[in-house]
């Protein structure tokens, strides 16, 4: 019961924040920072691993949210802002890696995933990314809630194995095994659909 009430409270508060954005009230940014500041910072940190860059991304995200609402009215505020933050952090990451290599948790996990999916060919188009995204979504639909949680946590949010393990109250090795299983399943799913990354 308590969980449902807490969730309702969070939804109500999010709606209020969105209303403030619509009313062009700058307090909306303050409330967003209070409620989601740490969470957004973590997404950026998993990609960039740099405090100053993360703070810069955070400010850019607030600016982005301010510009996107209105006209948008997000159904789930947390999903909406996390996507903005991830896109900004990814752009920042690309900009920085053009200059130098950054060790990042996000890249560690992609290199890991890439090892499983690698083949001789390497398609580099936006179209392929979308197609891949569509197949990833199809594959996600076939996973259990727990596996979906691990997939999104690890590959979308870039969380460390230990963080996911702590959240699920299991060992990191258990999460590692689950991820291995998910990756093999994704590879099989891609191969069934004639995709070789």
């Amino acid at each position: 019961m308590a969980t449902t009430n807490e969730t309702q409270k969070a939804i109500i508060a999010d709606e209020r924040i969105v209303e403030l954005y619509w009313a062009r009230d700058e307090k909306a940014i303050e409330l967003t920072d209070n409620k989601y500041g740490q969470f957004l910072y973590r997404i950026a940190y998993n990609i960039l691993h740099d405090r100053l860059d993360c703070e810069e991304c955070q400010n850019d995200t607030y600016h982005g949210i301010w510009n996107c609402i209105p006209p948008n009215r997000p159904d789930v505020f947390s999903v909406f802002i996390s996507k903005i933050m991830r896109n900004i952090a990814t752009m920042k990451y690309r900009e920085k890696t053009r200059k130098k290599k950054i060790p990042s948790e996000m890249m560690v996990c992609y290199e890991d995933l890439e090892d499983t999916l690698r083949s001789n060919t390497s398609p580099e188009t936006e179209y392929l990314a979308k197609e891949l995204g569509r197949h990833i979504n199809d594959y996600l639909g076939s996973l259990t809630d727990r596996q979906q949680y691990i997939f999104v946590g690890r590959f979308y949010m870039g969380d460390k194995l230990e963080v996911i393990a702590e959240e699920l109250n299991v060992n990191a090795s258990t999460v590692h095994r689950e991820i291995k299983k998910i990756k093999q399943g994704l590879k099989s799913h891609f191969e069934r659909n004639g995709i070789y990354v």
Partner: peptide, 10 residues
């Protein structure tokens, strides 16, 4: 490519 593809997660 993978980073972008995963950005399309529903």
């Amino acid at each position: 490519l993978l980073m972008d593809a995963i950005s399309y997660v529903d």
